[in-house]
């Protein structure tokens, strides 16, 4: 019982770290662009697939274990750096003036397209590449043998991401410019800020975060079609529970939902998928704008 509980907590932490990486990108992009990007889940999936492909390629080289971890980061930078700007410039920049419904539909259409792009490139057979997990090796926690990758690396990356983002948005010039655009785009533009550039930058960065989440998730699971849709609804649950645009809130909620879900996996597996939404519905019933959200407060 206690053993199971400990295992559930460890799994929950690792899972929460991954969900946070995706959710924080989603909430950051929404905060600045005011568009909820449904295709964010596809960026997660594509990041995972690219990481697996790079990982397999790296495994064939002489210094294999050394490359396993950097390959994950490279995959995320590739997806964020290439796909992010292309999508923002070619597609999203055309719809900022349109209805919310149409914006949602456009990103949903993009999501449909990218789902099949994955199938066309990587097929529908499960892909498994765990070189990065093997590179770090196992660790014993009490009586449980666990992977160092999930116990240390995932939570560390998530925590570092959170701290860096907080520092970046509050202390650096670019970060403050982003916050300014979030508050009032017109006033910021009047002060000489290039809002279009801020949009491009934020979207690419958000895409990279989703892809990094995917790349980090890749070594721990088999990649099959459908991981994108599961991740987008899950991270939306996190973002909505925290309040749209809330970064620190997203971290706390990811932890709550990640733990709730992994405890369900061990004790009531049928209801694993239901738990995050039960938490979300319960929170939204009491606080319609989420735990930390409020319609008038600053959002980033």
């Amino acid at each position: 019982m206690t053993l199971l509980l400990l295992l559930a907590v460890l799994d929950g932490l690792a899972h929460a770290a991954l969900v946070f990486m995706v959710a924080v990108g989603l909430t950051l992009v929404f905060g600045v662009l005011r568009v909820l990007n449904v295709a964010h889940g596809s960026f997660f999936a594509i990041g995972a697939y690219v990481a697996a492909t790079l990982g397999t390629a790296a495994a064939a080289t002489a210094a294999a274990p050394l490359f396993a971890l950097p390959a994950l980061l490279v995959a995320a930078m590739l997806v964020g750096g290439l796909l992010g700007p292309v999508v923002e410039r070619l597609l999203l920049s055309r719809i900022y003036v349109k209805d919310h419904v149409l914006q949602l539909l456009v990103t949903f259409a993009l999501f449909m397209i990218l789902e099949d792009v994955q199938k066309l490139i990587w097929g529908v057979q499960p892909i498994f590449q765990d070189a990065a997990v093997k590179a770090l090796g196992p660790v014993e926690v009490g009586d449980i043998v666990y992977t160092r990758y999930q116990l240390f690396l995932l939570p560390a990356v998530a925590a570092a991401t959170l701290l860096c983002l907080m520092w970046f948005l509050r202390r650096t010039l670019t970060g403050r410019v982003i916050v300014a655009v979030t508050h009032d785009r017109e006033a910021a533009t009047a002060m000489g800020i290039d809002a279009a550039r801020v949009y491009l930058l934020t979207f690419s960065f958000g895409t990279m975060l989703a892809a990094l989440g995917g790349a980090l998730a890749a070594p721990t699971t088999s990649l099959v079609p459908g991981i994108g849709v599961n991740m987008i609804v899950l991270s939306f649950a996190v973002v909505a529970t925290a309040g749209l645009g809330q970064i620190e809130g997203a971290a706390l909620t990811a932890l709550l939902i990640g733990l709730g879900r992994s405890i369900a996996v061990y004790f009531a597996p049928e209801f694993e998928v239901v738990i995050p939404y039960l938490i979300m519905v319960a929170v939204l019933l009491v606080r319609p704008h989420g735990l930390f959200g409020s319609p008038e407060l600053r959002r980033v």
Binding site: L36, H100, V101, V233, A240, E270, E272
Partner: peptide, 24 residues
Amino acid sequence: RYRDIFFGMLNLAFSMVVYSLLEK
């Protein structure tokens, strides 16, 4: 009670829950 994004995504969430329950 919700509009726009929340309305669309909450409906998606409910359908995903029902889908997974039907499957599991």
